[in-house]
Design a protein around this nucleic acid. Structure first.
Length: 573
RNA sequence: GGUCCCGUAGCUCAGCAGGAUAGAGCGGCGGUUUCCUAAACCGUAGGCCACAGGUUCGAAUCCUGUCGGGACCA
């Protein structure tokens, strides 16, 4: 239990005491009481709105109630002062010993400081991310979702959830047939034919090795054979090769999924039929005719009866077909069955999708809600696109011409840590600009550098200090500014809980920038006045105390970075 | 035409499940060099939180509508 949770309990106890005394009615105890660090440090260490929240149900003046609660809180041995402020806030200042022992705790718990306790949140969570079509290498379009999904999975795991990282392989649609045809062309090329890649097939030369492997395996057996003879085996081998490539690309970012679920296998298992049967039995699927699309009606549109899922019952605009007029499952039909399957395995589902799939969110959320009998287990997180720049100039990409920027290229150029960190420097729902020149710059504007720099500075000092014989640290030697940094470090467990609850891994990056800033600030104090330097040869006791603080900050930086999948730098070169 | 996302300082963005005087970086102005280095720090100026209603003791935050930018569907 961290500092914040502990004092939340203390506040709750006092509220319960007021109920027991009959000062406030029992039903008021359900009010939303929060305890948070105040924005303004002069307001103390913690602030609670308890009196404001309880005033109305208790039919009392908020400031009077605050005074009452404040008096009770002030008796707590770890609370130095409890002051009523503003409309009825209670500002708490804790005894300094609380923060000193928290500092000691950071060091004793090490990389586990802030880790969620299993008892709090053990829900199994399934995070599905990347799920790129197995038709080519990963490119930058996939990168952000991959990093956000992976960091979220780590965050949830660190917060105490059981996490499954899953990748849905779309190996059953028309795209993979196109892949098989493209591979066949490369196969003929490998056999010595001169080929020309027609419009509509994948032009990338990453299929050349696949063609060669097919030639080696089959000789010229399928060179002139009709498609029906080679499509299935070629498709299987091409998909397998693409998945191997994708796994390799993801590994460059340090991303490893636990499960790769195959759409084709799902289809073969009859899962869509089962989902359909269940929903038909509950009248959530019916045969009907959709209205023509609004706006321009395409010439080939004609009314057809299709099996439709009643997504409108869950807030969608129209009901959605689960099969096409030729009887094949729609993408949605398969996806519905897939999510039903996932929902059986996990109590919470998170999907990380590109913003281009925004239009299909409602129907799949509706389907999960229907199939799980109203439990809203699915949370679809949309990740906006990344715009690439090089020194301020946009990087041109044309997917059709095959000259897109691959993820592997980017990782090779700027490094895995930089890519991972940068992808988390904005809220996922806002567009992100990624400038190759900027992200490797060593300046204050570059948060990756800024955070690494703080850690490197601490590492350097600790290397130097290792030669000194220092006494046991006496943390009471730390001054108010130093204790302020300790308080910031002590917020890490709370940040983990909140970021995990909101499912927003980017908050870690912003917290790290704050923490690093706090450290740089203290460091520079030492440049202004040597008395503030961490290493004070004339005062080993003070040195020992300051190094404890520095160690704790470095520990939290390392832990937070590791949740983001980034390695802390010992030195900068 | 519809759905989704965004609109906070000149620029790029935070804003913690509604809380106190809305924050940070860049850029502007003025300062600070013995530890990893001025690659950093400190100070200062700069805001009708797009707009209009609503809910609330209290709204940048929640709801409705309008305007502007983007993505997608057809």
């Amino acid at each position: 239990m961290d500092v914040f949770q502990r004092f939340e309990a203390v506040v709750a106890d006092q509220v319960a005491a007021l109920v027991a005394e009959g000062t406030i009615p029992a039903e008021a105890a359900g009010a939303a009481i929060v305890l948070e660090p105040p924005r303004d440090a002069s307001h103390g260490d913690l602030a609670t709105n308890a009196a404001l929240a309880l005033a109305k149900p208790a039919r009392m003046n908020p400031r009077e109630l605050a005074t009452l609660i404040g008096l009770k809180l002030a008796r707590h041995p770890e609370i130095a002062t409890a002051e009523v402020a503003g409309p009825g806030f209670i500002n708490l200042t804790l005894e300094e010993g609380v923060w000193r022992s928290e500092l000691a705790r950071i060091l004793s718990e090490g990389p586990d400081y802030g880790r969620g306790e299993a008892a709090i949140e053990t829900l199994p969570v399934n995070v599905e991310y990347v799920s790129a079509n197995p038709t080519g290498p990963m490119h930058m379009g996939h990168c952000r979702g991959a990093v956000v999904g992976d960091a979220l999975a780590s965050l949830l795991a660190f917060a105490g959830h059981q996490v499954t990282r899953e990748y849905y392989v779309n190996d059953a649609g028309g795209q993979v047939d196109v892949l098989a045809r493209s591979a066949h062309l490369r196969y003929r090329e490998a056999l010595g034919e001169a080929i020309e890649i027609p419009e509509g097939l994948y032009p990338g030369d990453y299929l050349q090795p696949v063609g060669k492997a097919l030639a080696a395996e089959f000789g010229d057996r399928y060179a002139a054979a009709p498609e029906s003879e080679w499509l299935v085996p070629f498709r299987a081998r091409a998909v397998a090769a693409m998945m191997e490539m994708i796994r390799g690309d993801l590994a460059l970012l340090g991303i490893h999924h636990d499960i790769f679920s195959s759409e084709a296998a799902l289809l073969a298992s009859g899962a869509p039929q089962r989902a359909e049967a269940e929903l038909r039995a509950r009248d959530l699927i019916y045969d009907g005719v959709l209205p023509p699309p609004k706006g321009e009606t395409p010439d080939d549109w004609e009314p057809v009866e299709l099996p439709l899922f009643r997504s409108t019952a869950y807030g969608d605009d129209i009901d959605r077909p689960i099969r096409k007029s030729n009887g094949q499952w729609t993408y949605f039909g398969n996806d519905m069955a897939y999510h039903a399957e996932k929902a059986r395995r996990s109590s919470a589902l998170v999907n990380i999708w590109g913003a281009d799939h925004a239009g299909t969110v409602k129907r799949i959320e509706a389907a999960v809600e229907a199939l799980t009998h109203g439990e809203k287990r699915l949370d679809v997180k949309l990740v906006q696109m990344v715009r690439l720049f090089r020194g301020g100039e946009p990087v041109k990409m044309s997917k059709r011409a095959g000259n897109f920027v691959t993820l592997a290229d980017v990782v090779r150029e700027v490094g895995r840590d930089v890519v991972r960190f940068m992808m988390l420097t904005k809220r996922p729902e806002a567009m992100l600009d990624f400038d190759f020149a900027h992200v490797v710059e060593q300046s204050r504007e570059n948060p990756v550098f800024y955070v690494h720099y703080a850690h490197a500075r601490i590492s350097s000092v600790l290397r130097k200090a290792s030669e000194l014989a220092l006494p046991v640290p006496e943390l009471s030697r730390l001054d108010a500014d130093e204790l302020g940094l300790a308080k910031l470090a002590a917020q890490w467990p709370r940040l983990v809980r909140q970021a995990a609850a909101a499912r927003e891994p980017h908050r870690i990056a912003f917290y790290l920038a704050d923490l690093a800033g706090g450290f740089h600030s203290l460091w520079n104090r030492g440049n202004d006045d040597p008395a503030f330097r961490l290493l004070r040869e004339d005062d080993p006791q003070l040195t020992a105390a300051r190094l404890e603080l520095a160690r704790a900050v470095a520990q939290v930086i390392r832990t937070a970075l590791s949740v983001m999948g980034v390695t802390a730098a010992e030195e900068l070169r």
